[in-house]
């Protein structure tokens, strides 16, 4: 299947600029970047997409076994880069996507030349000598929360959500659709995200990397940010004065400033 359609790829910004790929994390879709895109659009070619199983990706492309490991999501990233023939792109990944970017940069080094990791965590569950912030039971609780909230999702709504970007009159009905995902697919993504352990992959990162963390983040606490920064040789750590896990929404100016500064220093 056509990757551009499969992953609902959107390309905007300056066609001559260096490509910047913005990848959403678990939960919502590419709309999460709505406050980031305008800041990048003038100088960069901005590429947005939805992972298969999220947003308005093609539901029939979902395969549980593929998306039960982060490699499956990294495969989406590499295939989007290939479909657009991106070279030396800057990959900006939020949350679990930061780790997806690490994997993708490892497989396709010619495609990805720099990484911005927004609120990354290589492992969410506590381990010997490592504090990720969660226990396996906590993840089960999250799965229960997902089950209790089929946000904007119903069998009747699904086709509208998945395939009708061109029908704005549905806007009102489509409330919550940015986070509307087929419950089965959301469950797979949640499990893959929160049960993943990518700590060993961090050492392999060989491109300039910016680690952006929030001063108050339940999901990726500061010690995790510090861990990522320590593990990636030569990375830059910036702590944003922001609460929550989505600084690109809660503190967009500071987030954009940090990203732009990093991008400017790349050349």
């Amino acid at each position: 299947m056509d990757t551009v359609r499969r992953n609902n790829v959107t390309v905007t910004g300056n066609p001559q600029g260096r490509p910047v790929v913005l990848a959403h994390g678990f939960g919502c879709d590419q709309n999460m970047w709505r406050l980031t895109v305008p800041a990048l659009a003038e100088d960069y070619r901005v590429v947005l997409f939805d992972y298969v199983g999220s947003g308005r990706s093609e539901p029939s492309a979902f395969q549980e076994d593929r998306y039960s490991s982060l490699d499956g999501y990294a495969g989406d990233v590499v295939e989007v880069c290939e479909a657009l023939d991106l070279r030396d792109a800057v990959f900006v990944g939020h949350s679990v996507s930061a780790m997806t970017g690490v994997l993708a940069a490892g497989t396709a080094p010619e495609r990805i030349g720099a990484l911005v990791m927004v609120a990354p965590s290589p492992r969410y569950i506590d381990d010997d000598g490592y504090r990720g912030g969660f226990s396996a039971d906590d993840i089960d609780e999250l799965l229960a929360s997902l089950e209790a909230n089929y946000l904007g999702w119903s069998a009747a709504m699904a086709p509208l959500i998945m395939g009708n970007a061109e029908r704005p009159e549905l806007g009102e009905e489509l409330k919550n659709s940015f986070c509307a995902t087929d419950p089965e697919m959301a469950r797979v993504f949640a499990r893959t995200t929160f049960l993943s352990d990518s700590r060993d992959d961090l050492k392999q990162v060989a491109v300039p990397t910016l680690v952006l963390e929030c001063s108050q983040d339940v999901i990726a606490p500061r010690e995790v940010g510090a861990f990522v920064h320590r593990a990636i040789p030569g990375s830059t750590l910036v702590t944003l004065d922001a609460t929550g896990h989505c600084p690109h929404l809660s503190a967009p100016e500071a987030t954009n400033e940090a990203i732009l500064k990093f991008l400017a220093a790349l050349r």
């Binding site: 939960g27 999901i219 989505c246």
Partner: peptide, 30 residues
């Protein structure tokens, strides 16, 4: 979020908060 269970916190951070920011409102979340 201190009032919520851990699973609820995770849900809040990944769904509730971003949706609230994007839509200015959110309703009926369990």
């Amino acid at each position: 979020t201190d009032l919520l269970t851990v699973g609820g916190k995770l849900y809040h951070e990944t769904h509730f908060a971003p949706l609230l920011r994007m839509q200015d409102e959110i309703s009926g979340i369990a």
